[in-house]
């Protein structure tokens, strides 16, 4: 069983490394993620963010602008995730009420 696990892991790593050979060069400013325009002429999101973040939201830190404004809904989801975690810990682990006392 363990050897099968190791083989699967090695196979997975090898396949992933093979797939990564086809990825664009790291640091290449003309890689698809850095482009101004995609092959089908839709605007490239990243360069739009870099160009317009300060103009749109009067804020220098682009990451903050994307986090809270352009993709603010993701961040709302992220807050929801952590609230879920808090609620689940509360639900699973909080102390049972001792008889008569209210400080649960």
């Amino acid at each position: 069983m363990k050897t099968a696990n190791y083989i699967v892991l090695l196979l997975f790593t090898a396949l992933m490394i093979y797939a990564s050979l086809g990825l664009p060069q790291r640091g290449d400013p003309y890689a698809p993620i850095h482009l101004e325009e995609s092959p089908v002429h839709s605007p490239g999101a990243s360069s739009y963010y870099i160009r317009n973040a300060r103009r749109d939201a009067h804020t220098n830190n682009m990451v903050t602008v994307i986090l809270a404004d352009y993709r603010g809904y993701d961040t709302l989801g992220e807050e929801t995730v952590i609230m879920t975690a808090g609620l689940i810990c509360f639900m699973l682990l909080r102390r049972r009420k001792e008889k008569g006392s209210e400080n649960a």
Partner: peptide, 12 residues
């Protein structure tokens, strides 16, 4: 743009 900036602050 300033309104957005304040909005971001509120959210943060």
């Amino acid at each position: 743009s300033m309104s957005r900036s304040y909005g971001i602050l509120l959210v943060e």
